[in-house]
């Protein structure tokens, strides 16, 4: 009978191992620095750590404490307001601009980069620009007064009740162009024949968009939502640069809360607990997206 080809076996076996070997550094980094760290932080959230990590388990005390803190409630309700407005307004502006820009506009090539460039800036730069622009003493209000509109008032940034909306404005300014690009790509991906068919069916412009185009943009809506939601939960730099969390604590978000509790107030256990809650929020948003991403590509 035939002879086994043992010599060649070795190379084939090696070839089977190389891919896994090559992947392993990244996997190791990820397991340690992402998932290991997550577990570690979860563990810390059940300990009485203050300035340094301690490993004494104290049950759910940190979580109980956290939800009893008015500062945390402020941060969470601020996040609710911020995220809702940020996501809604970005989506609305993004979709509107995309649809308008898709009407065979002359100068589209000029307008698109103008809408998009804020995305290239750091939130610190954005914050610096808007902080000043919104400052009543020298910014927009001041300019309006100089232009003769004496009664113009725009002091939100100094107003405890309104300051959170200035964060929305700056954040929308930074990201809405990017959302526009996502919707524009979605629009350009729609099969033109479907639109022709709908027009032949007698659909008006309005109903064409409402009944055909916008439903077809579902994937773009989903992507926009996932990206905006996770950006909202992670928001940190913008608050630091724009309001520093103030006036008072009026614009604290969970991200700034976590940082100040952990590193400046030395309440590491509580800080860890707040981080765990942020993670869980994002996980809840991401799971359906991850699931669809993995299932489709199989």
């Amino acid at each position: 009978m035939a002879s086994r080809a043992d010599d060649a076996d070795f190379r084939t076996k090696l070839q089977e191992w190389i891919p896994k070997l090559v992947l392993s550094p990244s996997v190791a980094l990820m397991l340690v620095f992402v998932y290991g760290f997550i577990l570690y932080t979860i563990y810390l959230s059940f300990t009485g750590s203050k300035m340094l990590p301690k490993y004494d388990l104290i049950g759910i005390d940190n979580y109980v404490r956290l939800w009893g803190l008015s500062a945390w409630w402020t941060a969470v309700s601020n996040l609710a307001v911020f995220a809702t407005l940020y996501i809604t307004i970005c989506t609305a502006i993004g979709l509107t601009l995309a649809i308008l820009l898709d009407q065979k506009i002359r100068g589209e090539g000029m307008l698109r980069p103008i809408y998009l460039y804020p995305m290239a800036l750091s939130f610190i730069v954005t914050g610096t620009a808007w902080k000043w622009f919104l400052d009543p003493g020298i910014g927009l209000e001041h300019t309006m007064h100089l232009w003769g509109w004496e009664s113009f008032e725009f002091g939100w940034i100094k107003d405890r009740n309104m300051a959170i909306y200035t964060i929305v404005i700056a954040a929308v300014w930074q990201t809405s162009g990017f959302v526009m690009a996502m919707f524009l790509a979605g629009l350009r991906g729609i099969d033109n024949e479907i639109l022709k068919a709908a027009q032949i069916d007698g659909a008006s412009n309005w109903s064409l968009y409402r009944r055909i185009v916008i439903p077809l943009l579902r994937p773009a809506f989903l992507s926009a939502f996932v990206i905006l939601a996770h950006l909202a939960v992670k928001s940190y730099d913008l608050v630091i640069a724009l309001t520093g969390g103030g006036p008072g604590r009026a614009t604290e978000l969970p991200a700034t809360f976590m940082y100040s509790y952990t590193f400046t107030r030395n309440q590491m256990g509580t800080g860890a607990a707040s981080a765990v809650i942020m993670l869980m929020t994002i996980a809840a948003i991401m799971m359906p997206y991850l699931y669809s991403e993995l299932k489709e590509k199989k």
């Binding site: 035939a2 002879s3 080809a5 060649a8 190379r11 084939t12 076996k13 070839q15």
Partner: peptide, 9 residues
């Protein structure tokens, strides 16, 4: 050619 190829690259 009489050589078993199972597992050969």
């Amino acid at each position: 050619r009489g050589r078993v190829m199972n597992g050969v690259h």
